[in-house]
Simulated scan of single mutants.
Amino acid sequence: MDFTISHLFCALITLIAVVARALEITSQGSTSIEMASGQSVMLDCQFTLATEDSGPLDIEWSLLASDNQKEDKVVILYSGDRAYEDYYPAVKGRVHFNSADPKNGDASINLTMLKSSDTGTYQCKVKKAPGIRSRKMLLTVMVKPSRPRCYAEGPTQEGKDVVLRCVSVEGTSPLQYTWEKTSDTKLLPASAMLDTAGGTMNIRNASNSYSGTYRCTAKNRVGMEECVLQLSITPPPNTAGIIAGAIIAVLLALIIIAIILFCCCRARHRKKYEKEISYEIREDVPPPKSRVSTARSFTSMGSHRSSLGSMSPSNMHEYTPKLQYDKIPSVEDYDRPPSQAPLPPPVAGRMGAPNLSRMGGIPVMIPAQNRDGSIV
């Protein structure tokens, strides 16, 4: 019984000694690396083999998942004396082994053109039966600050509070901003208050001596950028002059508007007056010619009727007019004097009293007249 226990104890010691002389990773560098985007990094993984490690050599680099529910991503693999670099599409073409023959003890890899998405924990696992070892490294890819923009917020007048701002759009936090004056005494104003995290500098009760060139620097652990601002403190504006000028401008505008309205009203009144005058009948304008002719014709017709009234039945047939309703008298007929008026055509036969009574007419006694129209 004691012999058996002693043999088991010796076997355990021998196994521990064999394992101690087996595969080992000898890299002693930092396991946390911070790099800037766009740069390259080497993830170190050196190892040694023992004579007892007789199996095939396998080297595997993987990106460990931050969530235990997800699988790890194999980045690059060496197996059967061959390297496989197309496992992870996110780093395809940007990762390769540092040594052309990793089995000589160098399992390190180079990762180029770093991106912020490359941030994570990488594990180097070396296997050669019966030995197996691994090493983890945390890689943080930081983005250096972009070129900041410097500007003054609000009015830059004497006696006012001036705010200078410095903003960098890109950059991995934390970012730190610093202000400095690069002209004259190169001293910041005594009333200046700096905000290194927000990038602002407040200057109270600014004066002309605060004018000059200022520089702002934005930096983090992987880089820095800067911008320059030219600050000019101006005297306060002449308020009284501005008010007087505004009043004069308003008065001139009102005068111009009044002149325009007066001209428009006057032109409108003149147009209306001319339109009314054009419809009035002036006394010095002679009446139309047709009206005069019509009046004369009525006068001549009246005199003709009077002459007819003095005629006897014996000669009445000579002056009996034969009306024509289908003929309209012309203007020349009205303008012709009574002496030149055409005589009516003679009647074919005389109409006696019997005939006149037969036709329904009433005989009238007409005094006898001579040719001159006087009563005989």
Rank of each mutant, 00 (worst) to 15 (best):
V95S: 06
S173N: 05
I362K: 07
T172V: 03
V41L: 03
G159M: 08
L43H: 01
A258H: 04
N220W: 13
T294D: 08
Q46L: 12
D53E: 05
T239I: 13
V331T: 01
Q230V: 11
I281R: 10
S117M: 09
I132D: 15
K272L: 15
P56R: 10
S339V: 08
E226L: 05
L57Y: 04
R305K: 04
M359W: 14
H304R: 09
I248W: 01
V222I: 11
V141Q: 09
S300Q: 03
E24W: 06
E153Y: 09
Y78A: 02
C45V: 05
V95M: 09
D326Y: 01
P354L: 06
N104L: 14
S297T: 03
M311T: 05
K136N: 12
N110G: 12
T196W: 02
R82M: 12
A206C: 06
T172C: 03
Q369E: 04
I25S: 02
P102E: 02
Q324P: 00
C45E: 00
F47R: 00
R268P: 05
P89N: 13
P89E: 15
D195Y: 01
C227F: 03
R82C: 08
V292I: 08
E332K: 00
A17H: 07
T320P: 00
V19K: 09
G159F: 05
L111F: 10
G212H: 00
S312L: 01
K181E: 02
G245S: 11
N110S: 15
F9H: 11
A90V: 14
D372Y: 15
A246L: 10
T172M: 04
I5Y: 13
D372K: 15
L323G: 00
I259T: 13
T4W: 07
R147L: 06
Y78K: 06
H269W: 15
S134C: 10
R282V: 09
K272H: 14
N355M: 12
P345N: 06
I366H: 14
E274A: 14
N98D: 11
K272T: 14
S54K: 12
C227P: 04
S312Y: 03
G199I: 02
H96P: 02
N315M: 07
I247T: 11
P189L: 08
S27R: 02
M193N: 10
P288G: 13
K289F: 06
R296T: 00
R149N: 11
S62K: 13
N68V: 00
C166F: 04
M311C: 05
E85M: 12
Q230A: 10
F3K: 10
G199F: 01
S79V: 04
S211R: 07
R21V: 07
E180S: 07
M311F: 01
N110A: 14
R270T: 15
D333L: 02
N208T: 10
Y88P: 08
I203L: 09
D2W: 13
V364N: 01
L138C: 02
A36T: 07
R336L: 05
D106Q: 04
V169E: 09
Y78M: 04
M1E: 13
S30Q: 02
Y84L: 10
L12P: 01
S37H: 02
S300E: 01
S27T: 10
S211W: 03
R133G: 06
